[in-house]
């Protein structure tokens, strides 16, 4: 029996609709950018104090920390993991460093920052070890360590706050000073981005992170060590959280036991908005930074629009949910289109 005959007698009762959603997948960053622009214009029309230089720089400094953490979280998510402990790591590093500088007022800001990074790296190493060498699920490991780090923060502080008057001016200056007319926080964030661009795109290890996330089986056959990759991503995440701890305490000029509680959720939201795939393997720095900015703008714009601050969490939750569902729909659309292309 010949095929050609079969083809001619084929009933064509199958609906052959191409999914339009699939197109969104190709233009995610641009789409996000357009969305941000529209949002900014809308907010500006409602409240003209939005696009003032002061407010913009305020937004940028606020978003700086969020985006630094999002860079690390992106790598964790790319390996199909998650890190819920970053808020606690941030608090612990911020608290220890704040105590140290309040007792040693001569500490150079650079030393303080390095100290924070060091503490964060230690925290990240513990998690990386649990996940890679003991095979603990990332959600369980980081949930447990979140509690432990948070508890340690309270223990270290004895339940007391460290306030601005206890901190040396040079320390508070980390977040408030300017370098070449640009806020230091923003400069630090830019340095982190630059480092990330190089690390992710131009080193073997950076690409191995994506390889493990994209196809762990192949990675094994290629001889890439999954354990090494896990250790690296959680340690990096820890280091960035530690850095953020110092920046946070310096910016808000106070270190508390409950600093940044639940901040990990905003960070994860930024990543998901930025198109990082929860299934691993995919995630672009540009997307994640845009995602962080969107969250930052929303947080800044809500009070200006007279939206109660208590709506913030609800909106954030809805956005995450909508973003993950959109991701799935786009993916399904792409798959459906691929199937339609296959001639049966």
């Amino acid at each position: 029996m010949s095929t050609s005959m079969m083809d001619e007698t084929l009933p064509t009762n199958i609906e052959k609709k191409e999914s339009k959603l699939a197109k969104i997948g190709q233009f995610r960053e641009i789409g996000l950018l357009v969305f941000i622009v529209i949002l900014v214009i809308a907010v500006q029309l409602r409240n003209s104090s939005f696009l003032t230089l002061e407010n913009i720089s305020d937004m940028a400094t606020n978003t700086a920390i969020l985006s630094i953490l999002a860079v690390g979280m992106m790598l964790v998510l790319v390996t199909r993991g998650i890190d819920l402990s970053i808020g606690a790591t941030l608090a612990l590093s911020g608290m220890i460093v704040a105590q140290f500088v309040s007792n040693h007022s001569g500490t150079s800001p650079i030393v303080a920052i390095l100290m924070g990074i060091g503490i964060g790296i230690l925290c990240g190493l513990v998690i990386g070890g649990l996940v890679s060498y003991l095979g603990v699920l990332p959600i369980i490991a980081t949930l447990a360590m979140m509690n432990i780090f948070r508890g340690l923060t309270y223990m270290v502080s004895n339940g007391k706050w460290i306030s601005s008057y206890q901190m040396p001016e040079s320390f508070v200056g980390i977040a408030t000073s300017k370098l070449l007319g640009v806020n230091t926080l923003i400069i630090i964030a830019l340095i982190v981005y630059a480092f990330a661009i190089y690390f992710i795109g131009h080193t073997r290890t950076g690409r191995q992170i994506y390889a493990v996330g994209s196809n762990p089986e192949s990675a094994k056959v290629t001889g890439i060590s999954e354990k090494k990759v896990f250790i690296i991503v959680y340690t990096l995440m820890g280091g960035l959280s530690g850095l953020s701890g110092v920046l946070w305490v310096s910016k808000f000029a106070s270190a508390q036991g409950d600093t940044a509680t639940g901040y990990e959720l905003s960070v994860i939201a930024a990543c998901i908005l930025g198109g990082v795939s929860i299934a691993g393997g995919a995630g672009k720095l540009s997307g994640v930074i845009l995602g962080a900015f969107l969250i930052g703008i929303l947080n800044n714009a809500l009070p200006l629009l007279n939206v109660s601050p208590f709506w913030q969490k609800g909106i954030e939750g809805s956005i995450i949910l909508a973003a993950v569902l959109l991701n799935v729909m786009v993916k399904r659309g792409v798959e459906r289109n691929n199937l339609l292309k296959r001639r049966v």
Binding site: R207, A211, S214, N215, E217, T222, I224, S277, G281
Partner: peptide, 16 residues
């Protein structure tokens, strides 16, 4: 086929 669908062709060729 054991490749990395999220990575580009060059990377798939040179991975490792």
């Amino acid at each position: 086929v054991t490749n990395y669908p999220d990575l580009n062709v060059t990377e798939n060729i040179f991975m490792g």
